[in-house]
Design a protein around this nucleic acid. Structure first.
Lengths: 175, 175
DNA sequence: CACATATAGTTGCAATTGAAACGATTATAG
DNA sequence: CTATAATCGTTTCAATTGCAACTATATGTG
């Protein structure tokens, strides 16, 4: 597709080591941890991770709308809607409509939901503690800070749209 | 925002702050970065992340089997099979059978696959470089090390099955 | 008021994914 | 040698997901 590479001995010159590639390593790490947790939640409490997230956030911020839940959990609104419905079916979450804006829902934990949270939260916290066991306070702080910086940077860089080669002539489609 | 600490009662004693919870933060960070990359790969090269991983690993280790690809990419064998089929359809990957064990496949990049890798790899590396722009060499090393430790720890802790009683001999086999 | 536009949440549909069953081949036990 | 088990990769089927369309409310404009 492009002009043939003029490299004389090209066999390995563009090889990339997946094991050193930060996005790959992050993905493997995150998936490993998430599936360990997901297995435990499912097995012991019948909860998925989206459901657990909703319960956690409602424990901390009662009486918020589905949209706010979506923001605070970094979940899609569709995922929130479906997970909330399952939780309602299990009588773990209560659902009202906001009187002043009747599109808006007001979600909160039921008694059972709060009881479940009291069971799940310690397990989650204990798991995190085991993960970080070998890290001293300074290392923990540095790790947290590094993740914060990376996330900020990833959001700044953004969706990586076309051609970073030419200086962007701000030809951004607005529709 | 937080309830007044006056009540030593039950209401908030198990609240967990999702934003501080390491597995959640890792998941958000990884998803943010992965979807930025996925968008760019799809748009510019018509590649998914599984496909990109396979191309990268075949660029570095030619003539390996699907099973080895699965190990090296941390992908499921089913996912590898499907992605390899798409790549074969696009004439980016070649597929032979091992003569001494005819169950085993031998995969390698075609000429086009190598050309594509030469285009994609620099973009991937550049993206990673932008992510890490603000990190000095020591910070990079510490970050890499921290991730390594966390992954090892997560594998040690394992699937978090029932009864964290007897510490099983950690079978972190690397075959 | 009538109309267009915007927002909250749900639903339908197609694509993706994962677990288990499968066919083909090779390895092991008796 | 034969029967059984294990391995590699594919296929099948069901569950999950993501996107767009949809319903219902709400707001803003002439």
């Amino acid at each position: 597709m492009q002009a043939p590479s003029t490299a004389p001995e090209s066999s390995v010159d563009t090889s990339i080591d997946l094991e050193d590639f930060l996005p790959y390593r992050l993905s493997v790490l995150s998936n490993t941890i998430s599936s360990a947790i997901a297995g435990a939640y499912a097995q012991r409490f019948g909860l998925t991770i989206p459901e657990w997230r909703i319960i956690a956030v409602l424990g901390r911020f009662p009486e918020i709308s589905a949209r706010e839940v979506a923001q605070k959990t970094a979940m899609d609104k569709v995922a929130v809607s479906r997970a909330v419905n399952r939780l309602r079916g299990a009588h773990l979450v209560r659902h009202q409509r906001a009187p002043q804006d009747r599109r808006r829902s007001i979600l909160s934990l039921s008694k059972g939901g709060r009881a479940l949270l009291r069971q799940v939260a310690p397990m989650a916290i204990a798991y995190e503690a085991r993960l970080l066991e070998g890290f001293n306070p300074q290392e923990r702080q540095e790790l947290g800070l590094a993740m914060k910086r990376l996330l900020l940077r990833a959001l700044e860089i953004g969706p990586l749209e076309d051609s970073p080669k030419t200086h962007a002539p701000s030809s951004v489609r607005t529709e």
